[in-house]
């Protein structure tokens, strides 16, 4: 039995039980924190498809969270509030954005790919700040939110919590299947040795672009859900620092291990929250803490939970 499946079962079991446990300790604040961590984990798992499996280090992934969030917010502002329609719009807009930026960025690899994704991310960020009708720099507070068949179950109680959890699970499962599929195998081959993959008969760039599109659309969906949770969007969602946070999450959690991304996301959100409540300049402590984590938990948090013999297999 794959150990990572056991870890995942425990993680998802805990998350599933949370809405029943939290009222016992009486905190709606905590459930908001968990939603935040889950949203971060969704975007991180999607980025891990690129970095962990595809070896494509993007420093602009948060831009797709921003694009998804703004697509949703703008649609909501214009009276579209059906969740399925919003999903369709989000997927289309993030997919199209990724097709353009990926099509260009994937002509390069390595450091150049990183630079171009960074540049695209910043372009998207500045585009969002220039949307004067939708709040510009300051962002936009939303007065109407998404509905499901006209009902507002996603706007109160545990509806949103379970939707986010369900999306996290779907992302986890989807990336798990992809990583073991024919497609995922080609993606890993292209990471290992792109020249050889090409001489095996695989048009490497096309496979990478498809992975890039999938990852961007998943990140877009986390943006959609983020709007629903925060009831607010701002261009800050798309900054490169956010993209950096996503990389930190997956490196901290362990590359190509979806559980790692979940653990990493919770770790970051909790540390931010705890440190942030003590001191204003919490990032001063956060930095050295990350360095220590990376040094001592080589291979990521999830590898600390893995028995010695089983290490080294990335799927």
């Amino acid at each position: 039995m794959d150990r990572s499946l056991v870890t995942a079962a425990v993680l998802f079991g805990l998350l599933l039980a949370m809405p029943f446990l939290l009222p016992l300790i009486g905190s709606a604040y905590l459930s908001g924190l968990i939603i935040k961590a889950m949203l971060l984990a969704i975007a991180a798992i999607s980025l891990d498809l690129l970095i962990g499996h595809g070896g494509m280090i993007s420093l602009g992934h948060a831009a797709f969270v921003g694009v998804g969030a703004y697509a949703t917010a703008i649609a909501l502002e214009n009276g579209v509030d059906d969740i399925f329609l919003l999903l369709l719009i989000t997927l289309a807009v993030t997919g199209l954005t990724a097709l353009v930026s990926g099509g260009l960025a994937l002509r390069t690899s390595g450091l150049y790919f990183l630079m171009i994704t960074l540049a695209f991310g910043q372009m998207i960020y500045f585009t969002l700040t220039s949307l004067a009708a939708y709040g510009g720099d300051d962002g936009l507070t939303l007065w109407s939110l998404a509905t499901v068949f006209g009902s507002n179950v996603l706007q109160s109680g545990n509806g949103l919590y379970y939707l986010v959890l369900g999306t996290l699970f779907a992302t986890w499962w989807g990336v798990y299947r992809i990583s073991r599929s024919r497609f995922g195998r080609v993606l890993r081959a292209a990471r290992d040795n792109p020249e050889r993959a090409e001489v095996m008969g695989y048009p490497v760039v096309r496979f990478r672009l498809i992975a890039y599109l999938i990852a961007a659309m998943i990140a877009g969906v986390s943006g959609l859900l983020l709007v629903q949770h925060a009831e607010f969007v701002s261009p800050a969602l798309a900054t490169w620092q956010r993209s950096g946070d996503l990389i930190v999450v997956i490196v901290l959690g362990g590359l190509a291990t979806r559980n790692g991304a979940i653990l990493g996301a919770f770790f970051i959100v909790i540390v931010e929250e705890v440190l942030g409540s003590f001191i204003h300049e919490w990032r001063l402590i956060y930095g050295p803490l990350l360095v220590l984590m990376v040094l001592f938990a080589k291979g990521g948090i999830s590898h600390l939970l893995t028995p010695k013999g089983a290490k080294g297999y990335a799927s």
Binding site: I178, R180, R182, F183, M200, I210
Partner: peptide, 21 residues
Amino acid sequence: AIAAQAKSGSSLRFFRDASRE
């Protein structure tokens, strides 16, 4: 196996476990 995969059907398959083909 992955070299053989290139010549037996599409590699745009996203769900089935390739190692079990």
